[in-house]
């Protein structure tokens, strides 16, 4: 009886698992198959198995037709720059909010919490006009010049997303619960607030840094609505608009699947490698927020 129930549970899990895994497996397997084979395998289990004449042709075509590597590099630059700056900037503010007393602190905290509700979508349209008017310092023919705008650049995809009220709040919650005794002792020894942050708080806050890094990474890697508006040249284009443009050209499905797999695999790899961390981060972020 018990065994039967267990078997039933596993069978049910397998069925649901199939539903959740099928599209991804199908995407990856199809990326190695010529178009006719994709269609031939479509309605059988072969659709998600690496069988038949597997080839890298789709990938070769994708690399030839689209500057995927450039977009990939852009996405990596944008994501890593934002995440690193974000960890620093957001945790610093959270530190002053949670561990220092200053007038106005309460209001700032309330404001940060209130800002959590503004979704990025609500401000992209005016933000576009704003960044189009912000000058950048450029370098042209041997001198600094003020260039027209931030559009079509990497920084326009980085700077607006560094400070994030949700991440500040996550840091704030974690820092708040660290016992005060440590920094009081350090303060008596004449440590500056930054030293306390650097040598006491940061080393004790590994988990929250990991959480925020992972969440920020996912957010940035998957950016879509903002880059399609603010970045149209290919020089600064990240991967998601890249694949959308490729998809819009209606080339072969094998190639589209190859492109999709290529931009997904790195995230999937990071996910599988840091699975435990990923899962606990997201769950923790939710339950605390």
């Amino acid at each position: 009886m018990k065994h039967l129930r267990k078997l039933g549970a596993y069978l049910f899990l397998l069925l649901i698992g199939y539903v959740f895994l099928f599209p991804l497996l199908f995407m990856i397997m199809s990326s190695f198959k010529p178009e006719q084979v994709i269609f031939a395998d479509l309605y059988s289990i072969r659709a998600i198995l690496p069988v038949g004449d597997l080839t890298l042709d789709n990938y070769r075509q994708v690399f030839e037709k689209s500057d995927v590597l450039l977009y990939f590099r852009n996405s990596i630059l944008i994501t890593s720059a934002t995440v690193i700056l974000g960890l620093f900037v957001n945790s610093l503010l959270a530190f002053t909010l949670s561990r220092m007393r200053w007038s106005g602190r309460k209001y700032i905290l309330a404001a940060v919490v209130a800002l959590m509700i503004i979704p990025i979508e609500a401000i992209v349209v005016p933000l576009l006009l704003l960044v189009s008017k912000l000058p950048t310092i450029g370098w042209e023919q041997g001198g600094f010049v003020l260039m027209g705008s931030w559009l079509n650049s990497l920084e326009v995809q980085i700077l607006p997303f560094v400070a994030n009220s949700f991440f500040i709040f996550l840091f704030y919650q974690f820092f708040r619960d660290i016992p005060k005794d440590f920094d009081e002792a350090a303060e008596l020894d004449g440590a500056t607030p930054f030293q306390i942050y650097r040598h006491i708080i940061v080393p004790m806050s590994g988990p929250v840094f990991a959480t925020v890094a992972i969440l920020h990474f996912l957010l940035m890697w998957n950016q879509y609505i903002w880059p399609i508006m603010a970045v149209q040249g290919e020089d600064a284009r990240p991967v998601m608009p890249g694949i959308q443009i490729f998809f819009g050209r209606q080339t072969s499905w094998g190639e589209i699947m190859a492109y999709a797999s290529f931009v997904t695999l790195p995230v999937l790899a990071v996910f599988l490698a840091f699975q435990k961390k990923f899962v606990s981060s997201l769950a923790g972020a939710g339950i605390k927020g």
Binding site: W139, E155, L159
Partner: peptide, 10 residues
């Protein structure tokens, strides 16, 4: 290529 550098990294 024109060097276009952000305020941040300039």
């Amino acid at each position: 290529k024109i060097m276009k550098v952000s305020l941040l990294s300039c």
